[in-house]
Design a protein around this nucleic acid. Structure first.
Lengths: 344, 344
DNA sequence: CTAAAAAATACAAACGTTTGTATTATGTCC
DNA sequence: GGACATAATACAAACGTTTGTATTTTTTAG
């Protein structure tokens, strides 16, 4: 017969104390492994706790200690593999500091993000990690949270861990130009503070190579794979189809490669495609994707380390994260000279 | 100057009470919107709370109410898009019951899964959702948790929500047989309780079509995209390369299609590939993937609903979830008659 | 104007830990 | 065997809410 009474009395530290014939405080200290309590007692308590199925009450613990050893992680879109390496870095590092990571999905919506932050604050987490947070800087500035909130991949907030957001984009743009491309499309991401540096890099690279900026060559990607269809449609209708594309991220780049191939365009012969992030799949697709390697794992690690320092009240120099680098693969080549695409 | 003192005194209900000149109990009731307190007082308190930047202490709340309005979600692999729809269903439904969802990654490891469960239990969540949990049934049976633990996509545990795990596999196998295939490979997933029904369906389908079961045609997939390379390698070394593959899931199927294409094998002309789950990408790849549509969103919804019922102590009939159905697309066709592959 | 009913608020205990301090038991040394 | 140090344990207050009950205030009605 399945258990139908969920509110059954739980085993508390007091119950163990009673069973062991000691004071609750001795039980706590035993469970903490304190040297202050005799080894025999410690073992007795441990045994009893196990036998009685004791489960600590984190709520009570948090209440009195005022710390939870939990860090909150607010993630826009769990399914985006971009967060895979990042989360791994975060969890690995958190584990080293005996911290637990709790994730909340924000769906990339400001309202949900705010709810998530508030939720974490109510939970009395020791700190909050917010990669690619969508809420404006002003929100975080006025928040005055009692625990550190560290942003990842964003540079305009009080506490953040990031790496040179323009360097990678610049060098991949220069790569395209050096191959001979002049009509280079840029696919911007969902708008927000994270979006600007790439755009800036795009324009700077054009300028420094004496190429005019043409707003018609800038498209916008909503983050969903399906959207690449629309983008390609728009792009192919241009009087002069660009010879290269610098896409917002690998997802976008791969999606576009797919659609273009379906439409009979060969990558890189007819059109070059470059991505951003260097997700695991980037090496795996055909042709393999030229992209910017983004040090996600390190960003994750460093952000936890930084958060921890702040929480400990230590002076916290902004962490150093390796520079992004370009990975030149097969999806980029010199522009075609003759007819391109399937309208030949 | 950035805030360096994180342990600064927090605003509590008592502070508000003092400021408003009322008792703390009145403040709580005001914040809860209780009719028992005068409207004017309620508004005054609300205003004060906002002005003073009050943030409730969930720990204290949980301690006294013995419920947290949080459900824990232990997920093996966040990056697997399989969980995208599932999580969406879960979060949508949870929201309806004013529950928050907290996610913890288990990396598909039993030890981490156990830690996650314990962690949730200590956090005094109202219930735990464990899709594709890896720990053996015995673990959950003996756990005697004080809150309901509901498994999703698994049928051997006390509380679970699932749908007919064999029906989809059977019908896709029959589809392959009806196309004329007799040498059908099966790619099994990471071992575990979730793995068996598909395998059973595979064998049953073979048996009912008078096809001998050949253990050489069964491979094992570790869940990582890269692994499809090894699988294809092994498969192509068989004296008689199968004409169709029923893959563990869409990820596996898509990976294999990719590798096969690289090796010069055409899908479906040279070999048919069928997947399982019907992820969003399944429609998008080329050729589009024949697969089993798995009602993930509904599973997510129902599991929360079921969990909630259990938690409320209500009688909880096992939820009904729509049957999985097959989606016949372009990756399956009748077997080739002549020479296949690139060794022609 | 008073008594009773209703509305609004105050009181106090409880939830399960942790931790500083006080107390008791044990051991050590001359 | 006493004086002391040390080890082991007990005591008690606190963390910030919630909630049942008691109390006060206001309203209503006769």
């Amino acid at each position: 017969m399945p258990n139908r009474h969920w509110n059954k009395t739980r085993v508390t530290i007091k119950d163990i104390a009673k069973a062991a014939g000691v004071d609750p405080s001795t039980v706590t200290r035993s469970l903490q492994g304190s040297e202050r309590v005799k080894k025999a007692t410690r073992e007795k308590v441990a045994q009893l706790a196990a036998d009685m199925g004791y489960v600590a009450n984190q709520a009570a613990r948090t209440l009195v200690t005022r710390r939870s050893r939990i860090v909150g992680l607010a993630i826009p879109d769990m399914t985006n593999p971009f967060f895979a390496d990042l989360a791994r870095g975060i969890e690995d590092e958190a584990h080293k500091h005996d911290l637990r990571v709790l994730i909340r999905n924000t769906e990339g919506l400001e309202a949900v993000e705010r709810d998530a932050i508030r939720f974490f604050l109510e939970l009395k987490v020791d700190g909050i990690l917010a990669p690619m947070a969508r809420c404006p800087r002003s929100y975080y500035e006025t928040l005055q949270a009692p625990v550190p909130i560290v942003h990842v991949n964003r540079e305009d907030t009080p506490h953040h861990v990031s790496c040179d957001r323009k360097a990678g984009s610049l060098s991949i743009m220069n790569h395209l130009v050096s191959l001979g491309h002049r009509d280079i499309a840029f696919i911007a991401g969902p708008s927000g503070p994270a979006s600007e540096p790439k755009m800036q890099a795009y324009r700077e690279a054009l300028a420094s190579n004496d190429i005019n900026y043409d707003p018609d060559l800038v498209f916008s990607f909503n983050g969903q794979l399906d959207d690449t269809n629309n983008i390609v449609n728009q792009m192919l209708q241009l009087p002069k189809v660009p010879t290269a594309v610098f896409a917002w991220n690998d997802i976008c780049a791969i999606g576009m490669m797919h659609v273009l191939t379906e439409r009979g365009w060969r990558v890189p012969q007819d059109i070059s495609i470059a991505g951003h992030d260097d997700l695991a799949i980037a090496r795996f697709v055909d042709p393999s994707l030229t992209t910017v390697h983004w040090p996600l794992y390190e960003l994750g690690q460093q952000s936890v380390r930084y958060l921890y320092r702040l929480h400990e009240g230590q002076s916290a120099p902004r962490p150093v994260v390796p520079k992004p680098t370009t990975r030149i693969r097969q999806s980029t080549a010199a522009p075609a000279t003759g007819k391109r695409g399937n309208n030949a």
